[in-house]
Every structure is written in C-alpha cells, then in structure tokens.
Amino acid sequence: MSDQQVEKYYVPDQSPWPFVGAVALFLIAVGAGNFVIETTKGTEGYGGITLIVGLLTLFVMLFGWFRDQINESMSGMHGVQLGRSYRQGMSWFIFSEVMFFAAFFGALFYARNIAMPWLGGDSNNAMTHEVLWPGFEAVWPLVTTPGGTTTEAMGWGGLPLYNTIILLVSSVTCHFAHVGLEEGNRKKLIVFLGVTILLGCGFLVLQVEEYIHAYREMGLMLTSGTYGSTFFMLTGFHGLHVTLGTLLLIIMFLRILKGHFTPKNQFAFMAASWYWHFVDVVWVGLFMFVYIL
C-alpha cells in the first residue's frame, strides 16, 4: 500500500454507458426469453428481433465504454491503484466463471456417479429400478437412457485430441506473446498473439465439425439423455467462452497494431490472456471428465 500514499484518488467521470448496458441486458433478457418460447412453441413474435437489438446495443455499449476507457488510460489518467483494482476485479470475475462451470461439472458428476447408479438399483433403490425401468443398465457413457433413447459415445481420439493439443499450444503461444510484451519485443508479441488467435479459430472450426459429426452420424444430441445434455452443455458453454476469448484477443491484436500497451500499461492484454488461460484449463478438465473417463 506504500505507493498509494503519494497518489491522489482517481474517480472517473459520469458515463452514460453503464445505463445503456443495463438497457441492453434488459432487451437481451426479454428478447431471449421470448425467442426461446417462440422457437420451441412455433409461435410468432418479436423475441428474435428484440434479442438482436439488445445484442447490438450491448456491442455499441462495449465499444463506447471501452473507447472512453482506453482514451483515459492512454492519457495516463489511471494510476497504480486503479490498475490493481482492475486486475483484482478480473481475477474475481474469472473465479465466478469457474463456479459457473463448477455447476455443470457438478451436474455431470452427480448424474454419472449418483443418479445413474440409483436408477440402476444401487444404494437403497432396488425397487425403483424394478418398478420403473427393470431393463435399464447403469453404464457410463449412458448410451441407452432408462426411457430408451439410444446414442453413441464420443471417443477422445481424433478431433477432441487435436483440439486439446491446439488449446494447450495456444496457451503456450499466448504466454510467449505476453513475454514479448514484457520484453518490449513487438515482433514476438505480434507473431505469437496472431498464432494464438489462429489456434483459437482452429479450435472453434474443429468443434463445429465435431458437433456436425455428432448430430449427423452418431445421433448424439442435446436430447440424448444426460450424456448428451452434459456433453453439449459443457462443451457448448466452453465453446462460447473460447469464442469470447478469441474476440478479446483479436481486439488486443488490433490495439497492439495501433501501438497500445507498454510493459507497464497492459492490463487489458493481461486480462485477455488470463481469460485465455482460464478457458484452456477448463478444457483440460472437460477433456478428462467428458471425453476420456
């Protein structure tokens, strides 16, 4: 806390963007809610369009907010203390993301290690098994549900393995890019960050491919019992986070081309790279528990 003593407190000016952001989230929530109802019930409505308007508003808000923020940061208005606030804020945000994934991992473990064996008559549930689904066999991956839906299990070789390698390598290249920034080596920074972004895009392309394969050839779908539910929800939310992480890295790339960031002033880049490492770690967990085990 020593450097704080010489520093005067910085309080940012009023800004319209947070309120715009609240309106955007309102439109997104109303739009998404109605969109879900309309698409699944086949009714007509304004859900989709509201959702799109909301997303556009959110995009405008993020653009405006970050533009103001970058301008303030580049003109040196942000001090050491604020930088520390940003870093701590980002760390806690990532922790909240970890807990979000924990909910779905928890669902996977529960479905697999408790719900499924109980349906098969384990613990004190012999009669449940006997009366409800006597033919059900409790084996994971759950390719035949108690209700009789069948599917195929996704192996860990092939696409998932390639994707694991891609993400692990991208974590390393992202780190090298950061080292490049710390050293003031612009070329190293640009090359390694570019490679990281390409690897991220490659991951997403392969994942789309994997989904198409699962739906078309394996009959593995969101509706294929708990195996399909946990598979698609975990990999899907992870994919969403990879998309977001890639977008963040692309924005960092553009900022670096404009000459932003110095070894001392690089919070945004650091936050994006932390986020990237986080999605990699989640993937390692996914690969272990969804694919291999």
Partner: peptide
C-alpha cells in the same frame, strides 16, 4: 424445459433431486 435436455428427468438418466442439490 425448452430444449429437451435431461438434467432433472429420470427417464433420460437425470434426477429431479439433482436440481435441489444444485
């Protein structure tokens, strides 16, 4: 409810009690 997953549906291998745990 809307997309046919089976987290809380025993017929799909899930469990309504899992909802309560989460």
């Amino acid at each position: 409810k809307f997309f046919g997953t089976s987290f809380f549906n025993a017929a799909g291998g899930g469990d309504p009690v899992m909802f309560q745990h989460i």
